[in-house]
C-alpha cells in the first residue's frame, strides 16, 4: 500500500496549469562569480538502513555513498550522503527516482521533495568565497573536495551544499528560503574577488 501510495503521487503529471518554480531564471554576476537559479529537478529524500542500500542503489542506478560528506553521480542522477541513513537523490535527467524506489521491497522510506527544494548554482573563481560569506565550513579543496556534500548553514538558514567542480557549487535550500539564500549569495558574490 505504501508503494502504491508513493507511486500514485508521482505519476508523471499532465497538468492543465502551469508550473511556477520559485525565483525562476534569477541570476546575478560579479567579477569572480555567477549565481544562478537552476531549473526544477526531481528529488527524493531517501531513508534506509544499511541492509537496504544495495537494493536501493541498484534500483536507482547510482551507488548510494556510505562515507560521510560524499556523493555519487551517474547519468544525471546524484545521491548525496546527508546522514548515516539519509540521502538526497537529485535527478536532472527527467527521470523519477521515487518511481524507481517504489519497486524496492527492502526497508526504506522514499518521499518526494522535488518542489520542496530550490537549487542555486554558484560558479567561478570566487564561488567558495561567496559561500564562505555565510557558511562556516572549510571549503578548501583539501577539506571539501569535488563531489563533497553536506547539510550546513548559510547565514541564518540551512542549506545543502554540493561541490560539482573546483569552482562550482550547487546550493539547495527549501523553497521559501530561496529568496533569502539567493540574496545572501548575491551579496556574498559582490565581495568574492578578494
Amino acid at each position: 500500500m505504501a508503494k502504491a501510495a508513493a507511486k500514485k503521487a508521482t505519476t508523471a503529471a499532465t497538468p492543465s496549469v502551469g508550473r511556477r518554480p520559485a525565483l525562476a531564471g534569477r541570476t546575478t554576476s560579479a567579477p569572480a562569480v555567477k549565481v544562478e537559479v537552476l531549473p526544477p529537478a526531481e528529488r527524493i529524500s531517501l531513508r534506509a538502513p544499511e541492509a537496504s542500500v544495495a537494493a536501493l542503489s541498484k534500483a536507482l542506478g547510482v551507488t548510494l555513498p556510505k562515507k560521510p560528506k560524499t556523493s555519487a553521480s551517474k547519468a544525471g542522477r546524484t545521491a548525496l550522503w546527508l546522514g548515516p541513513d539519509e540521502w538526497l537523490v537529485i535527478d536532472e535527467a527527467g527521470n523519477d527516482p521515487l518511481a524507481d524506489c517504489a519497486g524496492v521491497s527492502a526497508l526504506h522510506s522514499a518521499v518526494g521533495i522535488s518542489h520542496r527544494n530550490v537549487a542555486i548554482a554558484v560558479t567561478g573563481a570566487g564561488a567558495a568565497a561567496t559561500i564562505n560569506a555565510g557558511c562556516p565550513q572549510d571549503l578548501s579543496l583539501d577539506a571539501f573536495p569535488v563531489g563533497a556534500c553536506s547539510r550546513t548553514i548559510l547565514g541564518k538558514t540551512e542549506i545543502v551544499l554540493l561541490r560539482n567542480a573546483a569552482d562550482a557549487f550547487r546550493v539547495e535550500c527549501w523553497r521559501s528560503f530561496s529568496d533569502y539564500v539567493f540574496t545572501f549569495l548575491s551579496e556574498g558574490s559582490r565581495d568574492a574577488a578578494v
Partner: peptide
Amino acid sequence: MLLIRCPYCEEERPELEF
C-alpha cells in the same frame, strides 16, 4: 564558536550546525 566532532560525520564541524 566551538568545533564539535560529530561521531556520525566523523569530523569536527562548526558549532553553528549543532
